[in-house]
């Protein structure tokens, strides 16, 4: 991965890149699509040599960056979103699966899932090109 993506935690009152704390993933990996919950920071982890590898698992991080939970994601994820509910307890997850003409192009669907106290549960898989975007709870 050319430039591993870090998570930045800003001071809400004085958001500055220079003073934001940074959470780095393990070597060769990066984070994206963060959602901050009461239980920790949820983010998608991407690993690989490609310039922008697909995420392969959801992780839960402590504010210091320690991984204390993870959930596998489908192969060949393209677009990916997370949204927390108003109580910051549950996370709505959307993974658009399938891209290109090779192995990852054979099956395309959009998965909407809920991550909560019971783990990661698929709500619905919609086949075909994505026409639905999860907005929130």
């Amino acid at each position: 991965m050319s430039a591993p993506q870090q998570l930045l935690i800003f001071d809400a009152a004085h958001p500055r890149f220079a003073t934001a704390s940074r959470l780095s993933a393990r070597h060769g990996c990066g984070y994206s699509a963060p959602a901050w919950t009461n239980a920790g920071i949820i983010a998608a982890e991407r690993c690989g040599e490609d310039s922008h590898p697909p995420p392969h698992r959801l992780v839960r991080l402590s504010p210091s960056g320690a991984v204390d939970g993870s959930w596998p994601l489908p192969d060949c994820v393209d677009g990916f979103w997370t949204r927390t509910d108003a109580s910051h307890t549950n996370v709505l997850v959307q993974a658009d699966v399938g891209y290109g003409d090779d192995r990852c192009g054979s099956s395309r669907f959009s998965r909407v899932a809920a991550l909560g106290e019971g783990g990661l549960r698929t709500i619905i898989d919609q086949p075909g090109e994505p026409t639905t975007i999860t907005s929130g709870w």
Binding site: D85, G116, T134, G136
Partner: peptide, 11 residues
């Protein structure tokens, strides 16, 4: 399971 009974999408 504690999740909100509804969610929002933009179709």
């Amino acid at each position: 399971d504690g999740t909100p009974s509804t969610f929002l999408t933009v179709d």
